[in-house]
Amino acid sequence: MSTCLDITNLSAVLPNGERVLRSVSLSVLPGEVRALVGESGAGKTMIGKAVLGVLPSSVRIVEGDMLLEGEDLGKLQPKARRTLIGARTALIPQDPLTALNPSRRIGPQMTDRLVRILGWTVEKADQRVRQLLDEVQIRDPDRVLRSYPHELSGGMRQRVLIAAAFAAEPRLIVADEPTTALDVTVQKQILRLIAALQREHGTAILFVTHDLGVVAKISQKVSVLYAGKVVEEAETATLFAAPQHPYTRALMAATPRYTDPFASLKPVDEAVLAGLAAEITAADKAWRRPHG
């Protein structure tokens, strides 16, 4: 089976030459959910942004290939790449409060890609969006479509964004910590919604999160990242049953459990971090910045 997303050897640097992505390789099969897990600054969001072509201007990709359904994103002209990404991918952003334009109504924000990029008629796009709003259990689509973002709650806005992401039947969705900014009670509902829509539509998802509990619930495969480097990758079940890398084991040990609410929070072990630092240094020594 051909892969939906194939990233090989992707490295990206900051202007000072520091690598923020260190020869990252990973792939996502059609209809598969791959979790990217790691602490803040591990580069998990950066990978998602690299795929979608929205890296900050300070970050530059220096080597590696990204294939979206066999098309080499690095070799396409900017306009062709933009259109391809617009047609085949979507983003579920982290913070629903800032991801909707405050001065535009919800309706046009949901339909604009369908109409203006994919060339659908306005009626068809409207129908489609209402269908998706129904799937994310929004019962009064008329009101929601007419609303401005500030008139909706955070959970409602995230539902709107999820519906908009699935509306164009993308092959790949990048979900960038889609539950982090929400209330704990809402988090569960939203996660369940994403999982349900994913199964229903058979969409591949690159699911960025720092929450191992979320990883266990939603993904089939996991890549564990540290300092922009994939330190371990495995099937989700395998990873939880037998984590190989000491960092993965330390992360799991550090995850708070509901079964023991009085246990104190544990940081990741110092020795593990020292080992990781050595690993990163060795990798950087071996790496030669490609020219050109």
């Binding site: 072509g53 929205v54 991801a99």
Partner: peptide
């Protein structure tokens, strides 16, 4: 232009 909704619009495919 650095805000989230603008990034989202770029992902949608807008120039």
């Amino acid at each position: 232009l650095d805000l989230d909704y603008v990034v989202l619009a770029r992902v949608k495919g807008f120039s």
